[in-house]
């Protein structure tokens, strides 16, 4: 175990919170002030029956804000974006790992960010890398369709990448109206009349594609097929660069 435990004693309890970032910070606050390290921290949505007694930690904005401010003050400025990125990642037990990471950071200060060989720190960085890598691929692999002048795309990422995609597409398509629906996390980035927001959304019904839209899809498919050189056929290399799980939302494979 890491050197975090002098701030908190391991205890047989489970924290349950509302799933928000402020909720998570409230859990951190509770852990530090009660000097307990829970066995896990679960969003209430994902709560499974457990042997451990669960405590519900209410989200309190002022406590959350104190924790948030303490990160750049007591650890390092770069630690805050790291923590808030990993919070959106698909790392299992991310809340518990982040809590341990913060406790370690409070004890060690800025050097925690350089301890790349530490089992916990390397796990945190790997989760960040996984999210940013997925985002990078999606910048290229997202496919919009035109529905009467507005653009819509569907993605099924493992990490919650929408906040990281927003800036790129807003800058690129600033004069358009567009929507990116994240089916996995049931949320959408909506950009309309030059303002953007991320909203929760259960499902998305898209209308039939117009003739013009179908023509551009067909042209893209034929370009995709034509541009490959038969004498260099190498499907393994293609899968390495573009894992199959992305194909379901890409025009050239549908």
């Amino acid at each position: 175990m890491s050197k975090s435990n002098n701030l908190a004693q391991a205890a047989d309890v489970l924290y349950v919170y509302d799933g928000s970032l402020a909720g998570f910070y409230s859990c951190v606050f509770h852990s530090i002030y009660s000097k307990t390290l829970p066995v896990d921290i679960c969003p209430e949505e994902a709560l499974q029956p457990s042997l451990y007694p669960a405590i519900y930690i209410a989200t309190e904005q002022d406590k959350a804000e104190r924790v948030r401010r303490s990160i750049p003050q007591k650890i390092a400025a770069e630690a805050l974006p790291l923590v808030e990125t990993v919070f959106l990642s698909c790392l299992e037990h991310k809340e518990l790992h982040l809590l341990e990471f913060l406790l370690m950071g409070y004890a060690q200060g800025a050097r925690v960010l350089k301890m790349l060989g530490d089992p916990l720190v390397s796990k945190i960085y790997a989760a960040q890398q996984h999210l940013l890598g997925e985002k990078q691929l999606l910048l290229g692999f997202i496919r919009f369709s035109d529905y009467g002048g507005a653009l819509a795309a569907v993605i099924t990422p493992k990490n919650f990448v929408l906040p990281f995609l927003a800036g790129h597409f807003i800058s690129r398509l600033s004069g358009e109206n567009f929507l990116i629906f994240d089916k996995t996390h049931k949320a959408a980035l909506v950009y309309q009349d030059r303002t953007a927001e991320i909203i929760p959304i259960e499902t998305l019904e898209l209308p039939e594609a117009s003739n013009e839209e179908c023509e551009y899809r067909a042209m893209w498919k034929s370009f995709y097929k034509t541009i490959s050189i038969q004498a260099r056929y190498n499907p393994k290399c293609r899968r390495t660069h573009m894992p199959k799980r992305y194909w379901e939302n890409m025009t050239e494979f549908n």
């Binding site: 260099r232 290399c237 293609r238």
Partner: peptide, 17 residues
């Protein structure tokens, strides 16, 4: 319309990888 990024961006990979 449009921007560019320093590292470039791959949008797809053809059958030849």
């Amino acid at each position: 319309m449009g921007n560019t990024v320093m590292a470039g961006c791959c949008h797809s990979f053809s059958e030849d990888g």
